[in-house]
Deep mutational scan, measured.
Amino acid sequence: MEQGTVKWFNAEKGSGFIERENGDDVFVHFSAIQGDGFKSLDEGQAVTFDVEEGQRGPQAANVQKA
């Protein structure tokens, strides 16, 4: 798993970007967020995640709040 920080997340659209510790920013969709309840992330929040190849390039998967 990688570690990173939420660069921004739009709760209305359900997507945003995570700033990786090593590498380019990666797209995140709300469906990749693990946990119960409303799936959203806050700017500056620390997260851990896997990276998968999506239709438009790398994207975060199995996102967990650190």
Rank of each mutant, 00 (worst) to 15 (best):
D24V: 13
V63R: 01
G4W: 00
G37A: 06
W8A: 03
E52H: 11
A60R: 01
V47F: 00
E53A: 11
T5N: 07
E21L: 12
E43D: 09
F30S: 08
T48D: 03
E12D: 11
F49W: 00
N10S: 10
F30C: 09
K13V: 11
N22T: 10
G44I: 02
I18M: 01
E21V: 12
E21W: 11
I33P: 03
F49D: 02
V26R: 01
P58C: 08
S31V: 04
G44R: 05
G23D: 07
G14S: 02
L41W: 03
G37K: 03
V28I: 08
K65R: 11
Q34F: 10
Q3E: 09
E53N: 12
S15P: 02
D36S: 12
H29F: 08
I18H: 00
K13R: 10
A32V: 06
E53M: 15
A11Y: 11
M1L: 13
A46F: 14
H29I: 02
V51M: 09
A66K: 13
Q64A: 10
V6L: 04
T48A: 06
Q55W: 13
Q45K: 03
A60T: 02
F27Y: 10
F49E: 00
A60D: 03
E19M: 14
E52P: 00
R20H: 06
G37I: 06
E21C: 15
D24K: 13
A60E: 03
A11H: 13
K39H: 05
Q55Y: 13
I33E: 04
V51N: 02
E21D: 11
I18K: 04
V63E: 02
F38N: 07
G14F: 00
I33F: 04
E12M: 12
V26D: 01
Q55M: 13
K7L: 02
F30E: 07
W8G: 05
K13L: 11
E12T: 12
E53W: 15
G44Q: 04
K7Y: 01
F17M: 10
E53H: 12
F27C: 06
E12G: 10
R56I: 08
A61C: 11
G4H: 01
W8D: 06
W8Q: 05
E53V: 13
E2C: 14
G14T: 03
F27P: 01
Q45C: 09
D42C: 15
R56K: 11
G16F: 03
G35T: 09
G23R: 06
V51L: 10
A66V: 15
I33Y: 00
A60V: 02
V6P: 04
K39I: 07
Q45P: 02
D24C: 13
V47N: 01
S40D: 05
F17H: 03
F49C: 02
W8E: 04
G16N: 01
F17V: 09
D24E: 12
Q64P: 02
G14M: 02
V26Q: 01
G37D: 06
N22I: 11
G57T: 04
L41N: 01
E2S: 10
E43S: 14
V51A: 03
D25H: 11
F27M: 01
Q3W: 15
A11F: 11
V26M: 05
S15L: 15
K39D: 05
D50Q: 14
Q59Y: 14
V47P: 02
D36W: 09
H29P: 00
V28G: 04
V6F: 00
G16C: 05
D24Q: 12
E43G: 12
E52Y: 14
R20P: 04
G16T: 00
Q59F: 12
D42Y: 15
V63A: 01
N10V: 02
Q34E: 10
T48N: 08
T48Q: 09
Q34T: 11
E2L: 14
V6Y: 00
A46G: 08
F9C: 08
V51Y: 05
G54S: 10
V63Y: 00
G16A: 02
D50A: 10
F38C: 12
N22S: 11
G57I: 04
K65D: 08
D36E: 13
E21Y: 10
E2N: 12
S31H: 07
F9H: 05
G54L: 06
K7P: 03
G4S: 01
F27T: 03
R20M: 08
N62K: 07
F17E: 04
T48G: 04
D36T: 13
R56C: 14
D25F: 14
A46V: 13
E43F: 12
A66M: 14
Q55V: 14
M1A: 14
E19R: 15
K39M: 07
V47A: 02
T5I: 14
Q3K: 15
K7R: 09
F17D: 02
G16V: 01
S31K: 06
G57F: 08
G57Y: 06
G16S: 00
F9A: 04
K39S: 06
F9N: 03
V6G: 04
E19T: 15
S15V: 15
S15F: 15
N22Q: 10
N62C: 06
I18Y: 02
T5R: 14
S40A: 08
N22Y: 11
E2H: 15
V6M: 00
N62S: 05
F27L: 04
D36I: 11
V6I: 09
L41V: 03
S15H: 15
D42Q: 15
Q3L: 12
A60P: 02
G37S: 05
E2W: 15
P58W: 09
Q34D: 08
R20I: 07
I33N: 02
V26H: 01
G35K: 03
V6T: 02
A66F: 10
S31G: 08
A66N: 12
F38P: 09
Q45E: 13
V28L: 08
A32F: 03
H29G: 04
K7G: 03
V6A: 01
F27G: 01
Q55G: 11
E43W: 14
K13Q: 10
D25E: 09
F17G: 01
N62R: 09
W8S: 06
G16L: 01
V51D: 02
R20F: 06
A66D: 09
A60M: 00
R56S: 10
H29K: 02
Q55L: 14
S15I: 15
Q45Y: 04
K13E: 08
Q59E: 08
L41Q: 02
Q64K: 13
K13D: 08
G37L: 05
E43C: 15
E12N: 12
K13H: 12
D24N: 12
D42H: 15
Q3I: 13
T48P: 01
P58Y: 08
D36A: 12
E53F: 14
E52M: 13
Q34W: 10
G16Q: 01
Q45V: 10
V26F: 04
A61H: 10
V51P: 04
F49S: 02
V51E: 04
F49T: 02
A11M: 10
N10W: 08
S31A: 06
G4M: 00
N10Q: 05
E2T: 09
Q34G: 07
G14Y: 01
E43L: 12
V28F: 12
Q34R: 08
F30I: 09
A11C: 15
V63H: 03
D24G: 13
L41Y: 01
A60Y: 02
